[in-house]
Design a protein around this nucleic acid. Structure first.
Lengths: 334, 334
DNA sequence: TTGTAGGCGTTATCAC
DNA sequence: GTGATAACGCCTACAA
């Protein structure tokens, strides 16, 4: 296929390529007559401008990179949809990347995106190190963090009030009479994990329940980890009467573990979990959850990023904190 | 930030820009000494090549577009992960787009991707019209369909054996003694929908069960549609004793509907559904499903596309059919 | 073993 | 109202 360029259109319409460019971009007045000529030529030749060439000139790609842990995790998937919906009206495209929490992959992707000159990046950073990211930000890469924040990353973030929500969740269990409450904690080294643990501790403390290290297990934020951690928790003596599971994937693992042990929820073990599921009201037990505003996180981050891009400013270093919703359903007992 | 270009590196290293280019791309021999010089200059200047400029020259972007109905649908999300994992080793990036089954959005995205010169597109086409897509393919766009296929789209596809799987699913219900089996059908106009319906009919016919139009309802492939369709099915007289729900989202809707009507599954209504869920073994009822090889669909499609890109050939028009796995769990009864 | 130079397809600055 | 023309940053003949 011989590419048809702007000059082909120009020739066909009997004008100069600048005129064609200008009708394309509505960037200066063109006499209606000539304009129609140009438009006709475009139609006839089925001309499609080269976004690549345009980007080279304009130094803008109308593309943003989205780096998450795993695009197949419904949490991120919803978030990405929020980003997409915010970007679409402005004709921005999304390049999505999954790091699997590997900081090397993260760095690789960041470099690729930077070299592809994306106008900005939205990312859920891995635990680190963040040298590449920080270096690129210093060189002018516009970035915004989602879900997690790190004090060594000099840019803004959109997160949720993890500590408060965790505290509320655990207090809910306490109010139901539970004293031995196990926690399935997330990946070490990221803000969400320790914030949620902090909320847990605060709740216990506020109600004079002594902390017990045996009741905190790391589930690595994945299904298998949640499964394993839950089995361990269930093996403590006496076993916990309730579990606080700190993310969606680990919740699946935790439920699998209960099943494995032949325990019913909430009769034998009550559960409160982080992250809501679309199917939460369709399958039993109906989970009591901290519903994070996933879609909004993405949407908001995209808005902030896009506005910085448009205004050619840096992304403000502000940390935007969105509120979680606590939804009581049957898994926590009655 | 003043962009540092290949010439800056060249100057610094005291060589020509072509030499730099060649060490960058390992595209011709460069004396070890000079090479080291160049590499050092690159380090010192923190040079990052411009993928945009390179793409303009090479007419290759190392990017593929992925167009699905909705990135937040776990079916597509898994599929996209398969695509990503296949693309990553080759350093290809993914631009993902959600159409919401709107052919206009589909066409818009296709145009954008074409103008951004993606090296190829992997898409789950909307019901149509497909003019834009077909036009672009004619102009040389490499594309491959996933999940669905259409005879008017002149390119390859990776799909699953929907008809056979549907038939097996329904026969399973029949073998359990069900005669009045309702179907929650998907979006009209796409191959998966009619293939699954076809399998349903064949199963009935093979067992001498007369077809009943009342037992087929369209759920539009979404949660709300599945909910509505299920309510309608449950209202027929006599009500069906089993339901065949033809995709994941509608299954959630169907379960919500059962709950709304106070019906238990499988005691009151048995269910067999299309699409497995990660949480299928964690929440009750454990669903009996046709598990599509979602990840593999994406992976396979990406392999085919990438190989066509590498060999600079067209995508073969072959239709690759992957096998489904039928997983019996409790929702279909015992 | 390395350098020179033209061009990929646009946009934007000047000029008319 | 419209046209020339010089970049944008890289790759790749072709030359040496």
């Amino acid at each position: 296929m011989p590419t048809v360029t702007i000059r082909d259109v120009a020739r066909r319409a009997g004008v100069s390529s600048s005129t064609v460019s200008h009708v394309l971009n509505r960037t200066r007045f063109v006499a209606p007559g000539t304009r129609d000529e140009v438009l006709r030529a475009i139609k006839e030749l089925e001309y499609h401008p080269s976004a690549i060439a345009r980007s080279l000139r304009r130094k803008q790609t109308e593309t943003v990179g989205v780096i998450v842990s795993d695009i197949s995790n419904p949490f991120f998937t919803d978030l990405v949809r929020g980003v997409e919906d915010a970007c679409n009206p402005r004709d921005f495209n999304l390049v999505v990347c999954s790091t699997d929490e590997d900081s090397i992959r993260e760095a690789d992707y960041l470099r690729m995106l930077y070299e592809k000159q994306v106008d900005g990046v939205i990312l859920a950073p891995t635990a680190g190190p963040h040298d590449t990211l920080v270096g690129l930000i210093r060189r002018g890469l516009r970035a915004i963090c989602i879900d997690r924040w790190f004090s060594d990353i000099p840019t803004g973030a959109v997160v949720t009030d993890n500590r408060d929500a965790a505290r509320a969740a655990v207090e809910h269990l306490i109010s139901l009479g539970h004293r031995r409450i196990g926690v399935v904690a997330g990946l070490p080294g990221i803000s969400t994990t320790w914030e949620r643990l902090k909320g847990y501790s605060q709740a216990l403390q506020a109600h004079g329940i002594p902390a017990d290290g045996d009741l905190v297990r790391c589930g690595n934020s994945k299904i298998g980890g949640g499964f394993q951690a839950t089995l361990e928790l269930l093996a403590t003596q006496p076993p916990p009467s309730a579990l606080f599971v700190t993310n969606n994937l680990m919740t699946i693992g935790a439920m699998n573990a209960l099943r494995e042990r032949g325990l019913r929820c909430p009769e034998d073990v009550a559960i409160v979990a982080f992250d809501d599921f679309p199917w939460a009201t369709a399958f039993r037990p109906y989970l009591t959850v901290v519903a994070q505003p996933t879609y909004e996180i993405g949407q908001r981050a995209a808005q902030i990023l896009l506005s910085a891009i448009r205004k050619r400013t840096n992304v403000s270093q502000e940390k935007v904190i969105l509120s979680n919703r606590f939804v009581v359903r049957e898994s926590s007992g009655s």
